[in-house]
């Protein structure tokens, strides 16, 4: 494992068992999460980004499984990494990581808490489970956490049921729960998608502050490039179970190289561009179903730079445009050669 990296995904394949047929959902992705950084995983719905994030904590639904690959994880740089992929799905090892060293926030704050248990009990449960503290200490810690994520009157909130919380409040509580044991990695699966724009901004603000304060690393799953710009350091763009381009956020935004990234970026409005009267474009066609995955580069039917006989026969190899920017596209095959030669 490289220096400064806490989590490393190597050639990860995930398949869906569909009536005995194996349908690939994620096809060999490689990712690295450096300590203290935010890695954004971006793609349209159904591209496999949520499934990838669930695979990291082995939370995959029953019919979905990791078919091959490695997920190497170490809580701190001086510990030796363990491979999460072959662990027992609900065994002791993975359970001691979940909620403790690596925790997760989900998309739907309204349904992420059990409606019939008190908020404080649901957060305190994680603390008691991993930190071996008394109930009273756990409760004090929950109140601290609720205060930290900006919930007013935490002394009272701790004894309330989720239905008396608004969506934004529940997402704050969810963040409190995920931070309860000072994890080294936080996985956030579209944490702001279901929220109003103003609340979205507040939640992002809290997450960014707490990340710095607690010196966490974060994997941030989203389809919203606006959110990426606000919070991420590194970006990986996914399309139909594969990473098509990755690099630092400024590099990807200013110098996108994959046709898919380019069209994603041109589909978001920018304030400064108003004078240019630049047209907002949408991507042609729609994401095909998993059963009709196009051969080769799955994006080719929607791509303007489609090279017949090439893109539809094989998936493009990695083109290392710069030490920090890599892309999978045949139009860059030669570019890489120029750099390397």
């Amino acid at each position: 494992m490289k220096k400064g990296v806490l989590l490393e995904i190597r050639d990860l394949h995930i398949t869906l068992d569909f009536d005995g047929d194996d349908i690939p959902i994620v096809q060999g992705i490689d990712l690295e999460l450096p300590a203290g950084k935010v890695l954004a995983l971006v793609g349209e719905s159904g591209c496999g980004k949520s499934i990838t994030s669930q695979a990291l904590l082995r939370l995959l639904p029953r019919e979905v499984r990791i078919s091959s690959g490695e997920i190497n994880f170490r809580p701190t740089e001086d510990q030796s990494p363990i491979d999460i992929a072959p662990l027992n799905k609900d065994g002791k090892e993975i359970r001691s990581i979940r909620g403790n060293q690596m925790s997760m926030i989900f998309q739907e704050p309204m349904s992420s808490f059990s409606p019939i248990h008190k908020i404080g009990d649901q957060i305190g449960e994680v603390i008691q489970l991993h930190l071996k503290v008394t109930k009273a200490e756990a409760r004090r810690r929950v109140i601290d956490l609720l205060d930290k994520v900006g919930i007013p009157d935490p002394e009272q909130a701790v004894d309330q049921y989720p239905h008396s919380f608004s969506g934004g409040m529940r997402q704050r509580a969810m963040i409190a729960k995920s931070l309860a044991c000072n994890p080294s990695i936080l996985i956030a699966d579209e944490p702001t998608t279901a929220l109003d724009v103003t609340i979205q901004a507040q939640i992002l603000e809290i997450m960014r502050n707490l990340k710095d304060e607690l010196r966490m690393s974060m994997i941030f799953i989203t389809h919203d490039l606006g959110v990426v710009a606000q919070i991420a350091d590194e970006v990986a763009i996914m399309y139909m179970g594969r990473i098509v381009e990755k690099g630092p956020v400024s590099e990807i935004f200013n110098n996108p190289q994959h046709p898919y990234t380019v069209s994603l970026l041109s589909a978001i409005p920018r304030l400064g561009d108003l004078s240019d009267r630049r047209k907002l474009t949408s991507i042609r066609g729609s994401v095909p179903s998993l059963f009709e995955r196009p051969p080769g580069c799955a994006f080719h039917p929607r791509c303007d730079s489609f090279i017949p006989g090439r893109c539809d026969t094989q998936f493009p190899p990695t083109s290392q445009l710069s030490p920090i920017h890599e892309v999978h596209c045949f139009i860059h095959e030669n570019t890489e050669k120029e750099i390397s030669s």
């Binding site: 609900d90 925790s103 989900f106 349904s111 992420s112 489970l129």
Partner: peptide, 15 residues
């Protein structure tokens, strides 16, 4: 199948 079950699992509870 509910989300909160996965959320609780993500907290590290035994099955």
């Amino acid at each position: 199948d509910k989300m909160y079950v996965m959320a609780a699992r993500a907290g590290g509870l035994s099955p």
